[in-house]
C-alpha cells in the first residue's frame, strides 16, 4: 500500500512538471487574449516555428533549401557553420518580432472590431499557414535540439528519496530546469507589466481599448509588442518541448492541450494559466495512473478536455478569470 502511495506521489510530481510545460504555452495565450481579445490558436505553431528556426540557425541550414533545390536543381542544404546557442536565440527572437509585426500589419489591422470567433478562425488560418511555412523553410524531418540544458535523471533526488523511503523518485533534470525557467519568466512578465511604461500601457489596453486610445496609447505598437512577447514565450516553450521530445510536428499540438488549461484557469489570468496547467498536468497523470488501466489507457488525450467541459458548465469564467463570459 505504501509502495502504491509512493508511486502515486512520483506520478503526481512528474505530472506537476508536465503541467509547468502546459503553463508555458498557456501563458502565451493569456498575454495575447488580455491585450487584444484575440484567442490565438497559432500559439502552438509559433512555438514549433520558433524551435525550428532555432535549430535551423544553429545548424546553419539553408532556409527554403528544398524549394530552391526543386526550382534551380541545386543541392544546397547547409551553409556549413554552427552558431552558438545564445546568438541563435537572439536571431530567432528577431525573427519572432518580425513575425509579430507582419501578423499585425497583414491580418489583425484589417480585422479590428470583428467578432471574437472570426478572429479565432483567422488565427486557425494563420496556424495552417505558419505550419506550411515552417516546414517549407526548414524541412519537415524530426530535429534534435540541444542548447546545452541538462537532461536525464536527477541523481540527487533519486538518492535522497531512496535513503528516506527506500524508493528512488525518477525526476528529469530538464523538467526541473523548465520549472525554474517558467518561474523566472512569470516573475519577469509580472515585473514588466507592473513597473514599466510599456507594461502599464499594456494593462491599460487590456482594460479598455477606447480609453487607452484616448490617452494617447498606440494600439498598433502595443499589439506588436504583445505578439512579440507571445513569440518570446513561444520560443521558450518551443526550446523546452523541443529539448524534451525533439522538434517535430506534434509540438504544435500542445496548443490544443493549453486550451483546457485556459478554461480551468480563466482566459485573462496569468496566475490562472500557471495553476490551471499544474492542475491539468497532475490531474491527467494521476487519472491515467488510477483509472487508465481500467479504461484501456491513453486517457491523457481527452481527460483535460472533459475536465474543462465539466468545469465550464459550473464555473464558466474559470478559477481566476474575470466574469466576462456571456451566459446564455
Amino acid at each position: 500500500m505504501f509502495e502504491q502511495f509512493l508511486f502515486a506521489v512520483e506520478v503526481a510530481l512528474n505530472g506537476f512538471m508536465a503541467g509547468v510545460m502546459y503553463s508555458l504555452v498557456a501563458l502565451g495565450f493569456v498575454l495575447i487574449f488580455k491585450a487584444s481579445g484575440i484567442f490565438n490558436y497559432a500559439q502552438g505553431v509559433m512555438a514549433l516555428f520558433a524551435a525550428l528556426t532555432l535549430v535551423g540557425l544553429m545548424d546553419g541550414q539553408v532556409p527554403f533549401a528544398h524549394l530552391i533545390n526543386a526550382v534551380l536543381g541545386t543541392e544546397a542544404h547547409h551553409f556549413g557553420w554552427h552558431l552558438p546557442a545564445v546568438l541563435a536565440i537572439l536571431f530567432t527572437m528577431a525573427i519572432m518580432v518580425a513575425f509579430a509585426w507582419a501578423v499585425n500589419e497583414l491580418i489583425l489591422k484589417h480585422l479590428v472590431n470583428q467578432e471574437p470567433i472570426i478572429l479565432f478562425m483567422a488565427t486557425i488560418g494563420l496556424a495552417y499557414f505558419l505550419e506550411g511555412f515552417g516546414d517549407l523553410m526548414w524541412g519537415a524531418d524530426i530535429k534534435k535540439l540541444d542548447v546545452g540544458l541538462p537532461q536525464g535523471i536527477n541523481g540527487w533526488i533519486d538518492e535522497t528519496t531512496f535513503n528516506a523511503f527506500g524508493y528512488g523518485f525518477f525526476i528529469d533534470n530538464l523538467d526541473i530546469v523548465a520549472t525554474v525557467i517558467a518561474a523566472v519568466l512569470v516573475t519577469v512578465l509580472v515585473l514588466f507589466s507592473q513597473y514599466t511604461k510599456q507594461g502599464r500601457a499594456l494593462r491599460a489596453v487590456a482594460d479598455d481599448h477606447q480609453a487607452a486610445l484616448s490617452v494617447g496609447i498606440s494600439l498598433n505598437s502595443i499589439w506588436v509588442l504583445v505578439w512579440s512577447i507571445a513569440g518570446f514565450v513561444a520560443l521558450v516553450a518551443g526550446v523546452m518541448w523541443g529539448a524534451k521530445s525533439g522538434v517535430q510536428f506534434s509540438l504544435s499540438l500542445i496548443a490544443l492541450k493549453a486550451l483546457p488549461v485556459l478554461m480551468l484557469g480563466g482566459f485573462t489570468s496569468i496566475p490562472g494559466a500557471i495553476v490551471g496547467g499544474l492542475i491539468i498536468g497532475v490531474g491527467e497523470k494521476l487519472f491515467e495512473f488510477l483509472a487508465g488501466p481500467a479504461l484501456g489507457g491513453a486517457t491523457e488525450n481527452w481527460f483535460a478536455f472533459v475536465l474543462a467541459l465539466v468545469f465550464l458548465v459550473f464555473r464558466p469564467q474559470g478559477l481566476f478569470g474575470e466574469k466576462i463570459i456571456e451566459r446564455v
Binding site: 483567422a122 495552417y128 505550419e131
Partner: peptide
C-alpha cells in the same frame, strides 16, 4: 498548407 491558411485569412478579411 500555406495556400489554405492564407486563403482562410484572405476570405475572412
Amino acid at each position: 498548407f500555406m495556400i489554405v491558411g492564407a486563403l482562410i485569412c484572405a476570405f475572412l478579411i
